[in-house]
């Protein structure tokens, strides 16, 4: 399979995914959707690591390991983030970014 799909294609996919995630994070109004944007960015990074490992440095497994750790930490991050969202929802009955504006310049 590696013979048919060049590395560039994989990198194009991951870079697109990264910036779609960033775009989603910056434009979406719902906090959960913003979190999904971040997850998309992290998964793009995972693709990068795994692809570099498989195509360029197949003798090592550093990239694979790194992506495993990223997956685990992203889960921890999401757990804490969602706990805080629930706390916010209990306080202001909304998880819309527009309503998270008690503190401003």
């Amino acid at each position: 399979m590696i013979d048919h799909v060049p590395l560039t294609h994989v990198l194009i996919v991951s870079t697109l995914m990264f910036f779609i995630g960033a775009y989603g994070f910056l434009t979406r109004k719902n906090l959960v959707t913003m979190l999904i944007g971040v997850e998309l960015m992290l998964n793009a990074v995972n693709i990068n690591f795994v692809a570099f490992d498989r195509y360029l440095f197949p003798s090592g497994i550093e990239g694979h390991f790194f992506s495993l750790f990223i997956i685990a930490i992203a889960a921890a991050e999401a757990a804490v983030a969602i706990a805080i969202f629930i706390n916010l929802y209990r306080n202001i009955r909304s998880i819309d970014v527009e309503h998270v504006d008690k503190m401003k310049y």
Binding site: V38, M41, V45, E77, I84, N87, I92, K102, M103
Partner: peptide, 21 residues
């Protein structure tokens, strides 16, 4: 306080995604 937590976790998650890239 909840607002501060959200702003911290989201911006730090975003920044660590950039760092990882």
């Amino acid at each position: 306080s909840a607002e501060a937590g959200i702003k911290l976790i989201l911006s730090s998650a975003f920044s660590s995604a950039i760092l990882l890239f």
